[in-house]
């Protein structure tokens, strides 16, 4: 079983390959995809699924390329502002099996309407999720920007608050795998550290210390980017 982070310098973009039982999933691949195929082959894994946490605007997705090379199924969230031609729409509760790992779709809109998180379960140790890929909903030390829909600023900030509550409910043991690290244009408050848990964020992430939904919305509306 592997879970590896592939970092793209400059963009501070984090993608992941996770594999078990001869199968692998890639989360948010970048456009130069050789690295995923090479890593999978080195581990004797076949990439069967490509999971997109949201439609990025700061980099070109490698999903259609990787899908063409591997035949893997691409999953993308609903409400992407267009029909994502190379992907199937994934919904809350959909699951993907990667060997003994089970990946469950959680809809976590706010940063974008189509934002998904992917909850990672180890079926051999089923008491609570082991990790979660949060895309741009929750980072280490910050949360996603909500300034992309100016006409609906209050609504999407509230949506992000609700999504964060869903992520917190996964439990403190859950390892956190966001789509960006410090230096990204997608959040200026991110920690330099690129590893964390839901529990550590619950205690330390400044945005998760805000206890009421209304206060959270006000804080997000006051942000300038």
């Amino acid at each position: 079983m592997i879970l590896e982070k592939i970092k793209t310098p400059g963009l501070s973009h984090l993608s992941y390959i996770v594999g078990s039982g001869g199968k692998a999933a890639v989360i948010d691949p970048r456009r130069d995809c050789e690295i995923y195929v090479e890593k999978a082959r080195a581990e004797g894994l076949t990439i069967t699924h490509i999971l997109e946490t949201h439609r990025n605007e700061d980099l070109v997705s490698g999903s259609p390329v990787l899908a063409e090379w591997t035949g893997a199924t691409v999953l993308h969230g609903p409400n992407a502002g267009g029909d994502v031609a190379f992907a199937k729409t994934a919904r809350e509760g959909d699951t993907v099996e990667i060997g003994q790992l089970k990946i469950e779709v959680l809809e976590t809109p706010g940063h974008t309407d189509d934002s998904l998180s992917f909850v990672l379960h180890d079926t051999a140790y089923p008491d609570g999720p082991v990790g979660v890929f949060t895309g741009d909903a929750l980072f280490v030390g910050d949360v996603g920007r909500t300034d992309f829909y100016p006409d609906r600023a209050r609504e999407v900030a509230g949506a992000l608050y609700d999504s964060l509550q869903k992520l917190l409910e996964l439990g403190d043991q859950t390892l956190l795998y966001p789509a960006h690290g410090a230096g990204s244009v997608c959040g200026s408050g991110m920690a330099e550290r690129e590893f964390s848990t839901i529990g550590h964020e619950r205690r330390n992430n400044p945005r998760l210390q805000i206890k009421s939904r209304d206060e959270f919305i006000e804080a997000k509306l006051a942000e300038v980017h």
Binding site: R31, R55, E57, V60, S61, G62, S63, A80, G82, V84
Partner: peptide, 13 residues
């Protein structure tokens, strides 16, 4: 990029 991430980008050279 927004367009490419809906329609699907091709492989880089």
């Amino acid at each position: 990029m927004e367009r490419l991430n809906v329609e699907g980008g091709n492989a880089p050279p």
